[in-house]
Design a protein around this nucleic acid. Structure first.
Lengths: 170, 170, 170, 170
DNA sequence: TTTT
DNA sequence: TTTT
């Protein structure tokens, strides 16, 4: 009945942007959050926490964050389940981000000066405006919109075909 | 660099208490936390979040909580990894509880009037006092202390032989 | 850029419900949250945290919570400022509750069996439906709706005439 | 019974470091946390949240943070009360920081390249080692240790003579 | 001005 | 493998 998570950490790689069949953007990324204490070997470990974010902030994540970016997440812990390729049930625990904060001032962590508060997005994209306006985009072979990510089947490049509209929160 | 979780929900079953080889108690339990919104079918779903707690609060959890108890957890999201029985790496995301709150007033949720703030623990157990006082307990075949749980191999009754002293936080 | 609070505690008195000039309900209440440690005198102290909640959940708070109720709050820390009666600036720090959880199962804490999850509200009231439907209620002297609280000037019975539509979040 | 706050924001001015009569360091600072939404005038407001931190992290705050620094706080909401100079009770709500995170990479926000993760503290100071080792420092007129802040009465330069050992958490 |  |  209460479920709140707050994380600050760094993206382990560039976020991945997907579009559900009904046209809703979803971004997923992993945050590396180093632990505040050392282990028995005296090393500082990290937790690698999978995060998902939907709709408009999904686009922002895809546009402004990349591998190594410092980001804050405010959201909920979420569990879901899907049938693995080997036929057995897979249990997933991840963080559903309700908002994502960009904590990378200017080009502090970037190799090429992009990302950050006041900078233009990595590439200009059509903006999500709350409806299913993605549906009227040709699913492939177009040269704008989500082209870079989507000019291939959005669900083709990873093994996880387990994201569907059923996972939509709210 | 920041990692905080707060949960309130109900135990899906009785907590499990383990003792590491060096004598530290660990309890694990799953919290069912119902979502604040309904899905497309109009049903209220829940997240089933695995939690672990160490040392003294582990004992309290084992003594005062049971299936159905309402509990609050304040902790961190933690990821770990172990080699599954089939030889492939298993990734686990769970909540490391730093404190656990008993939110079940008196015997409100209990079938037999036990549990709750002011009630005696389910069975009187030797208390964890911060050291490795568990080490001087015979590992099996004793009739007090953690007997009910430990009079069998503490790691035998579940498939997860993946808890070791290496997982000890702090 | 991140601001999150989660509280679980008990109401120090019945919540107060107000309506802004433009017809938006606001409830305010104080949560007593006992500290997890004892002070130098060995006593367990508490923090008394003022909370505000707007719109629909404000009504629920007014209907379902009362002095002594156990409640959870998920929200943000908020500061505001107003001019005190003696002419000097007053600084207020409080919690803006985005959601409020009723943790009082059945009539566990109640003296009269009311409140709680499945029980009818203390008195049946017109429900807030997101618009300014309160505006078409006569501001005073009516005998239903928010009558019990509002049949007097909603801002008369306390010194704080500092709640206005300007404080509306979102 | 649960009380957790997480904040990320910027210091409104340099932190202030105090030492209690029994030699425990306390730092206080205010975080400006901008709100995630705009007000009716379309402006983005901020909350100005007073924070206190004790012992070792108090020293770190004093050494590594300054006006404008981006910082994260994980802690609790705390209320206390003291008698104002005009004889009437003053109620204070603030955040007791249990840990403070420095989110300012290198010299990104600094005017003079100091502060940040890997940089030396602003001035080298004796470190707090958990005991009351401050007591054996001459209370005034020394030229190192907490000199800059303490070579004057630690409680003289502000109106708040309301910090005492009684406020010590844990 | 504080709750169990 | 899930709780009220």
């Amino acid at each position: 009945m209460m479920n709140r998570v707050v994380l600050v950490g760094r993206l382990t790689k560039d976020p991945e942007l997907r579009i559900t069949p009904s046209g809703v953007p979803v971004a997923s990324f992993t945050l590396a959050v180093s632990r505040p204490f050392s282990n028995q070997q005296g090393e500082r470990e990290a937790d690698f926490i999978n995060c998902v974010v939907w709709r408009k902030p999904a686009e922002n994540v895809a546009n402004y964050l990349k591998k190594g970016s410092l980001a804050g997440v405010d959201g909920r812990v979420q569990t879901r389940t899907y049938d693995g390729q080997d036929g057995k049930r897979v249990y997933v625990t991840e963080v559903l981000a309700e908002s994502v904060q960009f904590l990378e001032p200017r080009s502090a962590s970037g190799d090429r000066g992009e990302g950050g508060y006041n900078n233009p997005p990595r590439e200009q994209k059509a903006s999500y405006s709350g409806g299913n306006n993605y549906q009227n985009q040709p699913p492939r072979s177009n040269n704008q919109g989500y082209s870079t990510d989507l000019d291939k089947d959005p669900f083709a490049n990873s093994g996880q075909i387990d994201i569907s509209d059923d996972d939509l929160p709210f």
